[in-house]
Design a protein around this nucleic acid. Sequence first.
RNA 1: GGAGAGAUGGGUGAGUGGCUGAAACCAGCAGUUUGCUAAACUGCCGUACCUCUAAAGGGUACCGGGGGUUCGAAUCCCCCUCUCUCCGCCA
Length: 423
Amino acid sequence: MLQIAVIREQTDQVIAGLLKKNYKNAAAEVAAVLDLDQRRRAIQAEHDEVQARANALAREIGGLMKSGDKAGAETLKSETAELKNKAKQHQEELSSLEESLQAALVKLPNTPHASVPEGKTPEDNEVVLEHGSIPNLPEAALPHWELIKKYDIIDFELGNKITGAGFPVYKNKGARLQRALINFFLDEATKAGYAEVQPPILVNEASGYGTGQLPDKDGQMYHATADNYYLIPTAEVPITNMYRDEIIPREQLPIKNAGYTPCFRREAGSWGADVRGLNRLHQFDKVEIVQIQEPEKSYEALEQMSQHIQGLLQKLELPYRVLRLCGGDMSFTSAITYDMEVYSAAQKRWLEVSSCSNFETYQANRLKLRYKGENGKTQLLHTLNGSALALPRIVAAILENNQTPEGINLPQVLHSYCGFDRI
RNA sequence: GGAGAGAUGGGUGAGUGGCUGAAACCAGCAGUUUGCUAAACUGCCGUACCUCUAAAGGGUACCGGGGGUUCGAAUCCCCCUCUCUCCGCCA
C-alpha cells in the first residue's frame, strides 16, 4: 500500500507513477484519496479536542467526588452529555471515512522505479541480457510433454484421476529430479547467505493481506473456507509475513531467507493452448529467496538476488535471458521486476522461471515492517523476493534441451544430487 | 471434539473503576566513577495520528480484536480470535 504521506507530499510523482503502470483514472483516484484524507484529518482534529475536554471534565469530577462535593460533580456531569454526543458522531464519521480511505488506498498499485521502461504489454519489456546459446535440436526433437511419457517420469493422467488438471504426479527419475533440484537450489541459497526456513503453506487472511494477495487477488488462491486459510501461491507470503508487525534492529539487516514450498495457483481464466505440459500448473514446487533491507541498500540487494538466480541458471547450463518488465506488465505490488526466462528448445519459446522484485515500502507499509534508522526514527523497510527457482519450467527446458537418442543428459551439477546422470 | 486457564511495553511481570501510557526487574542507550574488566550510581528507554517547533513541548488513541456500562475502564459486562494445560483422537 502506498503511504498516505507520500501521496500527500508527492502527488504529481505518484500520479505519474500510476500512469506508467498503466493504471486508469490515476489522477481522479488520487484526488479522491486526498479528499478523504483531508476530511478524515479535519474530523480527527475536532474529535481530539472534544476528547481532551471530556478527559479534563472526568478528572475534575473525580476530584470533586473525592472531596465530597456531590453537587459540583453533578453540575459538571451535565456538560458531558453533549460532548459524548459529539464524540459519538465523530467516531461514526471517522470510521466511515477511514473505511473508504482504506478501500481507496488498497486499490492503488505500487509506483514503478525510475528505471522501469514505459509500456503496456509483455512486448514492451526490455531485454537486459541474453546468456548462452540456443540449442539446435533435430527435427524429430520432442516437446517435454512427449518426453515425460516416453521416459515415464511425470504422469498427468494419474494426477487428473486423483485431483484434477494441473496436478501432475512425478514418478521414478522424475520424482528424483524434483528432489535433486530442490536440494540444489536450497544448498546454493545457503551458500549465498540465506537462512533456510520451512514455513506453513496455509496462511491466514492477515498474511494474504500483508503481501498484497488480498483483497484484490483472492480468486487466484485456493481458499480453505472451513478455517479461512489460503493455500500459498508462493513462499513469499509466509516468509515475508514472518516479519509482519516487527521493528527490526538495524544490526540484523539485511534479513535473508530462503524456503522451499509447494505453490498453489488457481490460474482462473488463464487456461489455454500454450499451457500444455509443465508450462502452467495448479501446484508446483519452488524455492524462494526473500530479503528485507534498508531503503538505501535495497537496489543493491536486488542486483545481488538477480546475480544469484542467474548463477543457478548458468550452473544448470540453460540458455536464459533477463527482462526488465515494463510498467504495464509488472505485478500490482512491485516497484521493479526482473523476469528470468529459459529457452525451451523443442517448444521454441522462452519460459519464465523466476521473477525477482523490489517492493520498496509497498508491502512493508501493509505489514508494518519497520526498523530504526540512523537518525533513530522508525521507518518502513524494503522487501524483495525472487524465485530461485520455480521447478516445472526448469524441468521442461532441461528435458527438451538435453534430449538425445540415448536419453536425456542432465547437467553436471545435478549428477550427484540425482544419483544418475541421464534419464 | 470435551473441560479449564489465560492474552499488559523488546523480555519477565505487577496492576480489579480516577494524574496508570501503565510499577518493578532484565535487556538496550547516554553519562558518572574506574589503571583495565567488572561492579555501583544517574538519566533516557512503546507505537500511531494531529499540533507546534530551530529544538523542546502539547493533544488524542492504543494493555489480543470488536461492542457495551460509566462523568471516567487495562481494570466491570457481552461477542469474537488466538494461546496454554488436562482428557480424547492421531502422523
